[in-house]
Amino acid sequence: MTKNILLTGVGGQGTILAAKMLTIGLMESGYDVKMSEIHGMSQRGGSVTSQVRYSEEKVYSPVIEKGTADIIVSFEKMEALRNLDYLKPEGGVVVINNVEIPSMTNLTGEEKYTEGIEEIIEGAASKVISIDATRLAGELGSVKAANVILLGTLVKSMGLDHIDWEDIIRRNVKEKFIDLNLKAIKLGMDLAK
């Protein structure tokens, strides 16, 4: 069975690096993997999504069909809501980083940032894991590690914790951030319970 993972956030939050490490881990443990990325133009602040599909057999399409994501990992609340139609109606998991990044329309007051997003998602998903990844990462040393905390929660939730993520982190992040990210992935995994 092909598994579908959707990672989403706002440009600059590190979704792409998280998705990259995820796909490397999956590939190295023998899965067939396809990933598709849609990132807007070069400017900061647009929506970003990475779709990852993996299977012990051949994966066909690199894009996820709506209604089939096993898990959505959202680095920002509104982006979880934006992509919620991708979630499997039965058994879908949503991991939300509990931060609100206002968009241009929120900043100018044209639209008020929707309240109660978590309740809407709880009503739709079989399981919601809400974590303060940005704050927790800050406590570990840098808010930048929020993506790796979320990666930890993701891999644990998908039962992929047998893969040697620490090794993958060592090989894919800058030397001086390795320790921080090792702590982050462990914390993320612990939060998945």
Partner: peptide, 16 residues
């Protein structure tokens, strides 16, 4: 395919 139901108008725009 079946999708979860929610009010899509609650999603705020995020224009570049």
């Amino acid at each position: 395919l079946p999708e979860v139901n929610y009010d899509h108008s609650l999603v705020n725009k995020r224009p570049p």
